[in-house]
Amino acid sequence: MKKLVLSVTTGTLVTGGVIATVATGNASVPDVVCRGSTVTLSGEAGPPAATSGNFPVGTKLKVTNLDNGQATTVTVNGPSGSCVLLNNAAFDKVREPGKNLIRRARVERVGGGNAPATAASPSAAAGAQAPPATGQVVCPGSTVTLSGEAGPPAATSGNFPVGTKLKVTNLDNGQATTVTVNGPSGSCVLLNNAAFDKVREPGKNLIRRARVERVN
């Protein structure tokens, strides 16, 4: 009969003369956050960094693209409407060619900030160029970016079910578009390419001052 000897202090398991290493109570367990979130890019330049609506400035997040195994660790340097929104340099480290959206991502908090980030004040989203809201304003303080997906104008959302109609207004240029949610994402609203083109400013892949309204 084989004897099992477990050494708690060393984490060594001896079974039938074979030695194997086992996990002990002191093993480090990754702090996986924002489960189910998609990850996209802000279109902003600069060294690798991220913005987040969930974690304060200074938080270090490790983002892994589970479709290609590539990972990058970035520091949050500002707010956004997503769990994590990578700038161009950071996204290039994990992207698949031709894709601006990571649908299967793992986000881990690996250092810094334990408190939630403070969302921007709704009053900061008041733009003189934009008409008054006519629907229910939702996700105040959220930024809006694009998924990189093709097709007719549409959106994905982590806040509203498929079929919800959302009106997105870029308060910096007064342009607006109304889209229907056709799937899930990690953002309040994530526009596909056709929808984002209706409200974008030239050369920008991020709307920092956006108003989102639920219109049905």
Rank of each mutant, 00 (worst) to 15 (best):
K99H: 14
L61I: 08
L146N: 02
V110F: 08
G151P: 00
N100P: 05
D67M: 06
V76N: 08
I102F: 07
V74S: 08
Q129H: 02
T143N: 05
L85H: 12
P153S: 05
G98D: 10
P140L: 09
K93V: 07
N100W: 08
T59A: 12
A125M: 15
P140Q: 00
A119R: 12
S157R: 01
L61H: 07
Q129D: 06
N68P: 09
V144F: 00
A150N: 12
A130V: 07
G113I: 10
G98K: 12
Q136Y: 05
K62M: 10
L86M: 12
G151L: 04
V137E: 11
N100K: 15
I102H: 07
L85Q: 07
A120H: 15
G58R: 01
G151R: 03
T72V: 15
A105E: 03
C83V: 00
A119H: 15
P140E: 10
S147I: 03
G135Y: 05
A128N: 10
V144K: 04
V107Y: 08
T75R: 04
A150H: 00
P79F: 11
P116F: 14
P122H: 09
A126D: 15
E149M: 03
T156Y: 03
A125T: 08
V74D: 07
R109Q: 10
K62Y: 06
A125P: 01
G78Q: 05
T73V: 15
A125G: 13
L146A: 06
